[in-house]
């Protein structure tokens, strides 16, 4: 289940990023080759980028590879390190949950505002926030369970 989710997300990430690369290149080609542009092209590139970043951050959380200052916790005895990790993931899950909850009111009020160039409702882009933070919340809970119930030994060099 967890592996399926990760595979699905990584395929989405690759698609988003390939889309960004292809679209930016296409816009250059259109400018010189065809003397024109795709209206809203840049806006769409940014939407892809928002999704790639929000979902990418969740995937990175699932792998526990986010940038952090581990100097202090690395000096804790292993059994305390375990509790520190549980507290950390609980807090990370909490702030993602906060984002998820508060984004609902925001999108309900302003989601139907149309974007400037594409003319599509902005909830298309805004949805990246609850989606990304929702997945991040799931990953945090999963990490807590893993830490609680697995006998994984801690490698301080990590």
């Amino acid at each position: 289940m967890e592996r399926r989710l990760k595979q699905l997300l990584e395929v989405l990430l690759i698609l988003c990023f390939s889309g960004i690369l292809a679209l930016v290149l296409l816009l250059v080609v259109l400018r010189y080759g065809f003397n024109t542009t795709l209206i809203g092209g840049n806006e769409f590139v940014v939407i892809l980028f928002v999704y790639a970043s929000a979902l990418g951050a969740a995937v990175v959380l699932g792998k526990n590879e986010h940038i952090s200052i581990t100097w202090f916790v690395n000096r804790l005895p292993l059994e305390y390190r375990k509790y520190a990790d549980i507290i950390n993931f609980a807090l990370v899950g909490f702030i993602n949950g906060v984002m998820l909850v508060y984004s609902i009111g925001w999108i309900a009020t302003t989601g139907d505002y149309v974007s400037a160039a594409l003319g599509i409702p902005q909830y298309f882009a805004q949805m990246a926030v609850p989606l990304g933070c929702g997945v991040a919340l799931l990953y945090s809970l999963n990490q807590i369970l893993l830490t609680l119930f697995s006998d994984k030994t801690y490698d301080p060099s990590l």
Binding site: R31, T36, T37, I39, G40, G41, N42, A116, A117, G119
Partner: peptide, 26 residues
């Protein structure tokens, strides 16, 4: 045929197209 920067807003894009410029959103 001039490559003109247009703001990312519908009215300016449509306007630019009506005038026959090559609109570029930046």
């Amino acid at each position: 045929g001039l490559k003109m920067r247009v703001p990312q807003q519908e009215v300016y894009i449509v306007n630019a197209q009506a005038l026959g410029v090559n609109p570029q959103e930046l």
